[in-house]
Design a binder for these strands. Structure first.
Length: 610
RNA sequence: GGUCCCGUAGCUCAGCUGGAUAGAGCACCUGCCUUCUAAGCUGGCGGUCGUUGGUUCGAAUCCAACCGGGAUCACCA
């Protein structure tokens, strides 16, 4: 469990002060430390309004008394001032310089191992069509949350469950047999998932034509939709699949194989991976036994037609069917069985996080409740990482209307845009073509990932194509640029002051070998940067707790923004005072390392130059 | 209709365990490249925090109602 080291010093001191001054105990939960607003002097502010009832004194009096006591008893409290009920505390420079030294030595964004194993499920596509923008939000979110949990000390198992069976893939198979003429990814040059998606669309087109024909011949619409010959073929295909028909199974395996090749190429470019992949063709048989067990235990009940239900009305939900009357399974049946299987396979698992869109909020509420009712203690560790839909400026994405944004095309576009912008700046003349390709890939992907991750996951968001390829302002490339400038600065420092470069991780040694942490006086810009750096671990902790990368993304932006202000106004290499220069190099180094690590948590790479 | 989520600057978003004069980016206007990378930095413009009421010393933040937008409530996945 992470605790802010500064608050760890101040909190007990504050409680002791209050006890001594006013003879009352302060509830630690009632105490809120906040960063002092920039218009006042101070680093940490304590709001004493909530304590007034206990202190029996006015706000100024209370704050002043506490301030004096803290100043007298806590080393790091340099001085304080009181504005109304706000006690603004100035923390000693030595505290910040000590922190910076540690940050340089250890890195601040890797917490000690908790030993907890956490499973994160994300992506989980169907195999009948390529990945799109909606998947991109899911995948970047799941990947980033996995990284954040790892940085916070957890052992993370990344999984996805691929929906590789069902009517959807049969549709692609039927259409491919009818219209494909044996087309393959090799013969067509099409990516496997794109090829299969093409036949899914072809199915839909042919089916619609048949429906229109039958309606023209006098059939009712819903009847025509069900009775269209091609639809009957797809259903027949599904039956054969379930009967293990060898021909159907072979075709199914072949086409799914194409899709996986395509998905893997997309995942590779996204920079994400999985430790284990579940397939619904394996898991769809799971759960029936568990439902029957629940029935025996009296957790579920059976209706006259033989279907099995759970009554969740006492919990404010509805009744839910878990198994059909004919004994065949439903989505819920499989999900129950799959969850149980996972905890059997990974007995050490503490938590299981499902990254799934918020249209399934109800489904997961019911699923988790059912597993609790079945008596599984681990059900407390289940969590639905629910995220909002991605809208386009033109409205909702609809696959039927062809308004989906393809993930591969999207990535290609942002990378091309990065190339255009990069070539224009003509800063990269000495880059080889290969180096440029890598750089533009990094920049484009940073733009895309940051754009999708900076927004609170649970909120619906708008995808503006123009803004997503922006390289300026509140963007991933802006942060990368700051990092590249820091790296450049440090490279030059290494050339000009070779001795210094070996000491960058330590602030303590000046050119003369004298310790400087005790006496170093921070200027305004240094102080601002170092405080934001100091907050970063708490932000990581919050991101890990809330499973929300956006807080980390936003704070990292604030940090590098502050650093840019420092960089612009405070000389580093040009500083003649060796102590100051070393300190500023160490500060730059620490910001660079932390930035790199924070971006890593977002799945974003950093270039050494750009 | 029941349940859940959302509504903050022209646009996109922070802030929401109640606290000081509500922030950032984009856009628009302005200044800064003979000095460490100008993919940067400065300054300016821009707000009845959906509405109304309540709780409180104090509300964008909590509560209620209403308005507007969305999701969900299948023997689909």
């Amino acid at each position: 469990m992470f605790q802010d080291p500064l608050q760890a010093q101040l909190l007990p001191a504050l409680q002791a002060a209050f006890q001594e001054l006013f003879q009352h105990a302060l509830d630690p939960k009632a105490i809120a430390f906040q960063p002092t607003r920039p218009e006042f002097e101070g680093d940490v502010t304590i709001n004493v309004f909530p304590f007034l009832k206990l202190s029996g004194k006015g706000p100024e009096q209370t704050a002043t008394a506490i301030g004096k006591h803290l100043h007298a008893h806590v080393d790091v409290v340099e001085r304080f001032n009181v504005v109304k009920g706000f006690l603004n505390i100035v923390i000693a420079d030595a505290y910040w310089t000590d922190f910076l030294r540690e940050a340089g030595e250890k890195g601040i964004l890797q917490f000690p191992s908790s030993g907890d194993q956490v499973m994160v499920e994300y992506s989980s596509p169907n195999t009948n069509k390529p990945l799109h923008l909606g998947h991109a939000r899911n995948i970047f979110l799941g990947d980033s949350v996995s990284r954040i949990l790892q940085a916070a000390g957890n052992d993370v198992v990344r999984v996805q469950i691929v929906n590789d069976r069902g009517i959807h893939i049969c549709k692609s198979m039927v259409a491919w047999l009818k219209f494909g003429n044996g087309e393959t990814p090799e013969s067509s040059g099409l990516k496997g998932d794109k090829l299969v998606g093409k036949y899914y669309v072809a199915f839909d087109t042919a089916w619609k034509a048949e429906v229109a024909e039958q309606i023209a011949a006098g059939m009712k619409e819903d009847e025509a939709e069900k009775q269209a010959p091609i639809m009957l073929e797809a259903q027949e295909m599904l039956r054969k699949w379930e009967a293990n028909d060898p021909e159907v199974r072979t075709l199914w395996a072949k086409m799914n194989g194409w899709v996986y090749d395509g998905f893997n190429a997309t995942y590779a470019r996204m920079g994400v991976g999985f430790d284990k992949i579940y397939y619904e063709s394996d898991t769809y048989v799971l759960g029936k036994k568990d439902v029957m067990d629940g029935l025996e235990k009296g957790v579920f009940y059976k209706k006259e037609d033989g279907s099995v239900w759970v009554d969740n009305t006492p919990d404010g939900l509805d009744e839910k069917v878990l198994m059909r009357g004919d004994g065949t399974s439903l989505y819920m049946t499989q999900d129950i069985g799959t969850a149980i299987k996972r905890f059997e396979e990974f007995p050490g698992l503490k938590r299981l996080i499902y990254t799934v869109g918020n249209e399934q909020d109800y489904h997961f509420k019911v699923l988790f409740l059912i597993l609790k009712k079945l008596g599984y203690a681990w059900a407390e560790g289940l969590y639905h990482l629910s995220y909002g839909m991605v809208d386009l400026p033109t409205g909702k994405m609809k696959s039927r209307e062809g308004t989906v944004v393809d993930a591969d095309e999207l990535m290609e576009e942002v990378v091309q845009e990065a190339r255009l912008a990069g070539e224009e700046l003509s800063k990269l003349d000495d880059f080889s073509e290969d180096e440029k390709t890598i750089l533009f890939e990094q920049i484009g992907m940073a733009a895309l990932k940051y754009y999708l991750l900076k927004v609170d996951p649970k909120k619906r968001m708008l995808f503006d194509p123009k803004a997503s390829i922006d390289l300026q302002g509140h963007t991933g490339p802006f942060i990368q640029y700051t990092y590249a400038r820091i790296r450049s600065l440090l490279r030059k420092a290494g050339e000009k002051f070779p001795v210094v470069s070996s000491q960058l991780s330590g602030v303590q040694a000046s050119a003369a070998g004298q310790p400087t942490t005790d006496s170093y006086q921070l200027n305004q810009e240094e102080r601002t940067v170092i405080k934001l750096l100091h907050q970063l671990p708490a932000v990581l902790n919050e991101a890990a707790t809330k499973l929300d990368p956006s807080s980390l993304a936003n704070h990292t932006f604030e940090l590098v923004k502050a650093y840019n202000g420092f960089y612009q106004t405070v000389p580093v290499l040009k500083e003649e005072d060796g102590t100051k220069r070393n300190f500023r190099l160490a500060l730059s180094n620490a910001v660079g390392s932390a930035t790199k690590r924070a971006l890593w948590c977002l799945g974003i790479e950093v270039p050494e130059r750009m």
